[in-house]
Every structure is written in C-alpha cells, then in structure tokens.
Design a protein around this nucleic acid. Sequence first.
DNA 1: CATACGTGGAC
DNA 2: TGTCCAAGTAT
Length: 351
Amino acid sequence: MTASDLEICNDTATALLGWYDAHARKLPWRAPPGAPPTEPYRVWLSEVMLQQTTVAAVKSYFEKFTSAWPTVMDLAAADEAEVMAAWAGLGYYARARNLIACAREVAGRGGVFPDSEEGLRALPGLGAYTAAAVAAIAFGRRAVVVDANVERVVARLFAVEAALPAARGEIRALADRITPDERAGDFAQGMMDLGATVCTARAPKCLICPLAGSCAGRASGAPERFPVKAAKAARPERKGRAFWIERDERVWLVRRPGKGMLGGMRALPDDGWSARSDGSGAAPLGCAWRAAGQVSHGFTHFSLVLSVSRARLDDGDPPGAGEWWDIARIAEAGLPTLFARAAARVTGGGE
DNA sequence: CATACGTGGAC
DNA sequence: TGTCCAAGTAT
C-alpha cells in the first residue's frame, strides 16, 4: 500500500468513527462509543443471536436470556430443554445447540472467555465473523470484522465487480486495509450501523453517508448494484403432514433428532417430510383423522405445505417416544414457528 | 467451493 | 404475493 493509499484508509476509518460517535444505535448489548466494553458474555450472546437475524428479532430474546441466565456459568448449568425452548422462534437452532456447548466449554475455563480471536474461533458456534467481532468489541483487539453489512459497504466503497461469494477474499482484504489499529470494536459496530441504516441493500442514502466522498460505488452512479451476487438456485416446494394427537386436554409432542432441520426442538409428529422429498403421507396411528387445515412455510432452501390432521386417542399407546403436553400451556412448549403455526390451526390461537 | 440450516420484515 | 434480505457456521 502506498503512502497515499494509507492516508485514504486512515481518513475512511476516521470519518466512520466520527460518524459512529454521533449516530451509534443504542442497543441493549452495546456500550456507548468510547465507554468501557460490554462484558464478553453479553457480547458473545448477542453476536450468536444476531447471526443471520435482524436486530428487531433479537432484542426480546436477548432480554429473556440475560434475565434467565445472567452469566455464562448460569447458562452452562441450565437445563438444555429450557434453553432450546427459550430459543424457539429465533431460527437456526444449531446456534442454540452450539450456544449450550460453548457455555459449558467456557464454564470449564472458570467462566472466562478466551481474549484472542484465535482462542474464540475454537469455540463451538464461533466462526470467522463472530470470533473477530467478540475479539474487537469485548476485548478491544484489532480484528477484521466482516459481516453482510461490511461486505456491502466495502463492495460499494471500492466498487468491487467480482460477485459474491467468490469475492469474499477480495472484500476481506479491502476491509483489512481500512480497519484501524485503535477502536476496532467501535469501527466494526460503526460499519455495521452504517450498513444497516445508511448503506442499505436497497436505496442507499448516499446524501447522508460519511464515506460518500471517497466511495467508488457512489461515483459510479449506481451504488445499489454492489455487492454483485451470483444467481440463487430456485427453491423446491415440498408437501408434508403433521399430526395433532389429543387426550384429556393434552397433546402428544415429540423431540426432533439432534441434527438436521429444527434439530433438538419439540415438535408435532410428522410424516418424514424434508428439504429433499415430500413426506410419506402416512399417519402414525390407524385412527379417525380429521383435517385441521394447512400451513405454508418458507425455509431458506425450500418451501413446505404442511397439512395438519387431528385425532383423539382415548386409550392405547401414542406413537414412539414423546410427552403429553397440556394444551393450555402449548405456548411454553417452545415449538419452532412451523409447528407453532400448525398447532394454531387446531387451537385457533395466534393466526 | 457448495449446501443445509429459520424466521420475519420490507417492498 | 413472491422475492430478497439479515451481526454466519458447520460440514
């Protein structure tokens, strides 16, 4: 990098930090600019919750988790089923499984998080982004923090023509160039705030952007063209069935296998639908089923039309392993949204 | 490098 | 209404 390049990068960091000082969003897990950092537990918890998830969706979950489990030691000692149920509705449930595993690993270290990016990266559920974010935000380490916001801001700033995901390496190298040695945590959060509120995916607000003066994307006249993205595959539509089995004001719930779709979560019994294929259509019991409606649900890589059937089982064994759950307390079962919607078809609650 | 993995909001 | 998108990680 030439001396003049270096100057441009320093100016970028300075402008971004100045903007952050004045415009930082106030968030429950965030220390104000310049203040002592939030404790590592809260930074880590928020970062895991925020993976592929909007700030608005995370807020209530963050409050719920920090109230129930104020420290990483509390979370490590928590009942797994309670943690999974508390996560219900937030999606990407592998995060919750990894959250528990990570808390227990940290508890084994006396409740102390590693303070280096490399040490953090070795923990379950912490990839390149989260390890860098926690190192920078909680420990003030210089780390190159690249999430979707930073990718977009950097791709526009430098008018990166290569398409994602192949452009990841190039964008990361550019992000490295503009990351300052000091205040790396504020810089990272400032870049993310800028991406979330100014340099937005659609209709970027270049007129109020602190980096507009040096932005190649803006100079090109079409900043919204960046980052260039590869075309996505079409998502198939699958059909499946779910079964509401009722006895004495209770419903039969199962727990899904630890891995795969909705892994580890409570659920209604179903007919084995998956991203790869429709369900078998077969009911788990030979009894009088009544149709209770349909739920259309979009997942990331496929969409599902789920037909809900109900039956009363007054005597005899319910199918497989599971538990009878009080219908009046169905909201506390921690059903993922798909099954919560299916249950609502029967109970009339929610939708 | 590609794929599996949730959900809700914006347009 | 359908499509895109969001503070990604694991395999």
